[in-house]
Nucleic acid binder design. Structure first.
Lengths: 188, 188
DNA sequence: GATTGTTTGTGAAAATCGGAACAATGTCCA
DNA sequence: TGGACATTGTTCCGATTTTCACAAACAATC
């Protein structure tokens, strides 16, 4: 309880102070993969980081593609959160002729007609879908035919893809609905 | 079982065909708020829509503000999902002088220094945060001082705000982490 | 070295969630 | 009217998740 703070070691409570999980949950989740902490001391932050990266698979670099280079797609191309994990945006696609050929954030926007070639050649298995809602389902299915195994969908539709393909729908409207619902609850 | 389809009435099974919930779950959730369906028949679609909107609070219009008018913020200004709910973007803020004063999607971008005035005057309680990660926590706290009660955070940090303020972190990186983890599992 | 205080890891209890089964209620048709 | 069929709303139950409680392990101090 001295003024000296060791930044290289942190307790589960200190760590979860800025996460939205409880210390117990944090410890239990970690213990499932093995005990990385020292009792009475805490967790070696450097080692913990390495272990978590190994568990999550973010120690090796993953190549991802962004499909749809409109406003949202362009924004995602520059989104810093991807780089901080080991996610490399190595391809971008759009169907609009005036966007094809342009280079954004060092990535050349290709025609969607070339998706299969490029995705297969580069061995990309993760795609971020940022096309208008009307096209999302169709393009998503095309991605599956291109060998993609995981899709992060930003279009405001519920993307449904075959078994074996992971889909994560980032539904901003739903998130806002939840917030509104909570707000209403406080009023009542 | 005739060819005639009544589009004004639908069963829970028909409704959930395009949702990712089971019919039972759908009925159970609804029954928590009251029985809106007719046994043996189904749900009156028009009424169901009204009831759900009432429950979620999207029957009345909500005014929201977007803070940060960079790539992501601009994209969100044009995001169609907001309009489909009853969410009106009535204010946008940025700290960068070259963006202030510009009009995007009919909304004038104001200086962040004017946040408190405008947010309070317009009675805005919901804000969408799309600023760089380094500023997110600071700006979020400022929003709370401006009377905001719910924040949808797009910055790749875990925003923590005081009790009584709802925070929803749209963490795209986390979503991708989950996808990667699933992908790894299939490999092993 | 014993003692005290701290923190992890884990086993058990509690709560929550999702699915299956079923009774209640409605339509339709003879 | 009565019977066959369809669909909701609810109860029950198993599984999963979250929380609680505590023993084990470690550091620091006397």
């Amino acid at each position: 309880m001295l003024g000296k703070k060791r930044v290289d070691v942190a307790s589960s409570e200190e760590i979860t102070r800025f996460l939205n999980v409880t210390p117990v949950q944090f410890r239990k989740d970690l213990s499932y993969f093995g005990g990385f902490g020292k009792r009475g001391v805490g967790y070696d932050v450097a080692r913990l980081t390495r272990e978590i990266e190994r568990i999550l698979g973010t120690d090796a670099a993953w190549k991802i593609a962004i499909v749809g280079a409109g406003k949202l797609g362009s924004a995602l191309l520059g989104y810093s959160g991807f780089h901080e994990l080991n996610l490399q945006i190595v391809a971008a696609f759009d169907s609009s002729p005036e966007r094809i050929g342009k280079v954004r954030q060092g990535v050349r926007i290709e025609s969607t007609s070339r998706m299969k070639d490029i995705l297969r050649k580069k061995g990309i298995r993760i795609a971020v879908l940022a096309v208008p809602a009307d096209f999302a389902q169709k393009v998503g299915e095309e991605l599956v035919r291109c060998g993609v195994k995981a899709v992060l969908n930003f279009a405001p539709v519920n993307l449904v893809l075959p078994e074996g393909v992971s889909v994560s729908n980032v539904d901003m409207a739903s998130e806002l609905e939840s917030l509104i619902y909570k707000l209403k609850g406080e009023r009542a």
